[in-house]
């Protein structure tokens, strides 16, 4: 199936959001995730099963004024 992550299209096998983040070495890091316009709380990463067409935004903090 196909999802969009930070504006890039990706082909992935069906899996949980937690598993996806683990494979990207992002689990446990200071990030926040938006899925199809809604915030996914960290506590729900394992409950969310990614679906075809999902649009994810994964963000972190950087320097800014």
């Amino acid at each position: 199936m196909q999802i969009s992550v930070n504006g890039e299209v990706e082909q992935i096998e069906p899996q949980s959001l937690e598993n996806y983040l683990f494979n990207k070495s992002l689990l446990g890091r200071r990030i926040a995730v938006e899925r199809n316009g809604d915030i996914v709380p960290k506590s729900q990463f394992s409950d969310v099963i990614l679906e075809d067409g999902d649009v994810l935004e994964i963000v972190h903090a950087i320097g800014g004024g």
Binding site: S25, R30, I31, V59, A61, I62, G63, G64, G65
Partner: peptide, 20 residues
Amino acid sequence: VTMAVRRTNLGQHPNEPNLL
């Protein structure tokens, strides 16, 4: 102290220091 929120670089520099 202000900070910005930006897309995370996927799969690169997993040990990159974080502002926080």
